[in-house]
Design a protein around this nucleic acid. Structure first.
Lengths: 231, 231
DNA sequence: CGCCGCATTGAAATTAGTCAATACTCGTGG
DNA sequence: CCACGAGTATTGACTAATTTCAATGCGGCG
């Protein structure tokens, strides 16, 4: 459905590709993919697509952030993923999108017709493998998130989330949180009030500092990892 | 990683294949796949593999049930999925299993070397599509489960779970629960006590009847759907 | 027939949620 | 440049849901 890791950085430190040859075939294929994308922009809170829409396109985040969410009939919401620069959205081969995707901030995207993607995948085996790898990574992180939602308490959830965001940003010290407290709450299965309180608690324990609501400075990453019960 | 729907029943009512031709190519390929599987048996609570093991094999459940789980360092556990007859385990293309898989009951499995599977996939495009579809389905149901874990209360979780199990069994009226209360609790992010209490509550509301701990009779499926907040 | 493990039930404790009020912040317009 | 205002975020007091701890019950297997 999406990539948790930037696709324009083919060699993640976590999962090096099997060989230099495969690596170059892949990055060439990904570059070719980029070339068929059309750049589009959306304002904050605008929808890329709604749950149930025919899945005509997939997207890659160029700048800004996107959230995917599902709703219950009475309005309760869960935010499954946040997509940052380089992440793919809607890569899964389903006839209808299984979730709604909305802009968290003003956002710039590359938009790809799914038909063209499927065609490229069927022509280039390296792209097919790339798709399967992204799906596997997403599945594994979804299961990690289930562990968090099912078994971690509020502090552990926030600490885990901050570590994840720290990992994804350029600077592990300065974590930027483009989403609102409410987005974070709906991602972690908490309320905005609880998110706020835990941030306050972490601040008073000198684990983090808050430089405005959307900028966290991690003062003590070891303490944070301790608190996260690193699985 | 796994199939939520039996692979030997190629035409699920939910997701019919695009064409009769593709359908027969796929079922032929799946039959060929079955032929390279070796039948093995495990006793209750024996592990198929542990989280972090090299992912040499994948498995298909012939009889019995399997659970996949992840642990926190202090022993808290989450059961990500239950695998029943026909489901595939470990189909994701990852170098190491990202979770532990254990027999819920005595179980019979087909075991496939991953190398052989990858080879078949690269030779037969229909198998590759099948793999991608299973991954997408798993990902989507993982996200559904995140919604459950993050936003549903205990009654809604149990009701949703019973409906899911009813759907997977042969008879929607008679639901068999081969796993213990503790397995169910760890799957739904609850405790065994809460699971028991909710079963009791549903029984006193005449929504279900309990015929022994592992056999539930659904007396009022409409009420159950109501309670599940069907997403 | 009697265990042993699992399931159920009860009472107390705890965590996170709810409701309500106040404080920021950032963007806008005077 | 500063003041204002809307939308967020934070904080507090209270409530409710689920967990925890502790017994008791039940059922299947030896």
């Amino acid at each position: 459905m999406s990539a948790a890791v930037a696709a324009t950085e083919p060699s993640s430190p976590r999962r090096p590709p099997p060989s230099a040859l495969a690596r170059s075939a892949r990055s060439e294929a990904l570059a070719a993919l980029d070339r068929i994308g059309k750049e589009i922009s959306l304002g904050r809170d605008e929808a890329l697509f709604l749950e149930g829409d025919a899945a005509q396109y997939c997207f890659k985040v160029v700048a800004g952030a996107v959230r995917s969410c599902r709703l219950l009939s009475d309005g309760r919401r869960h935010v499954a993923e946040f997509f940052l620069r380089g992440d793919f959205i809607g890569l899964a081969a389903e006839p209808a999108y299984p979730f709604t995707a909305e802009a968290v901030t003003d956002v710039t995207l590359l938009r790809f017709p799914r038909i063209a993607i499927d065609k490229m995948i069927s022509l280039r085996p390296s792209l097919g493998k790339w798709q399967v790898e992204l799906l596997c990574r997403d599945l594994s992180s979804a299961q990690q998130q289930m562990l968090l939602l099912g078994r971690k308490n509020a502090i552990e959830r926030i600490a885990s989330f901050l570590l994840l965001m720290a990992d994804r940003g350029h600077d592990a010290e300065h974590v930027s949180l483009p989403m609102t407290r409410s987005d974070i709450a709906d991602h972690l299965g908490l309320t905005t009030e609880t998110v706020s309180r835990i941030f306050g608690q972490l601040r008073s324990q000198r684990v983090i500092e808050l430089r405005g609501a959307s900028h966290v400075l991690v003062s003590d990453i070891d303490a944070l990892e301790e608190l996260a019960q690193a699985a």
